[in-house]
Amino acid sequence: MSDFKETLKAQIIEQLNLEDLQPSDIQDDAPLFGEDGLGLDSIDALEFIVLLDSNYNIKIADPNQGRDIFYSVNTLADYISKNKQ
């Protein structure tokens, strides 16, 4: 699981153009959105939907669902492992 989370962090950095970050800069349980986290915004949330579809073939129809799924690397990893096709 921890290897998977590292891969996921690298994918997040690439998909969201967070070139200034290293995977180690992202804490597993820290919020990804908002001022306290990585400062991601609504467009990043939509880009997460693309990431899930492109890399894991997981489709999210309602972007409002994303709020809980993309809360942190932990919640995202958990959702992917449960829904991966």
Partner: peptide, 11 residues
């Protein structure tokens, strides 16, 4: 080409 319109590019 990549099969998913990217919102962050579109903006």
């Amino acid at each position: 080409v990549q099969g998913n319109p990217s919102p962050s590019l579109f903006v």
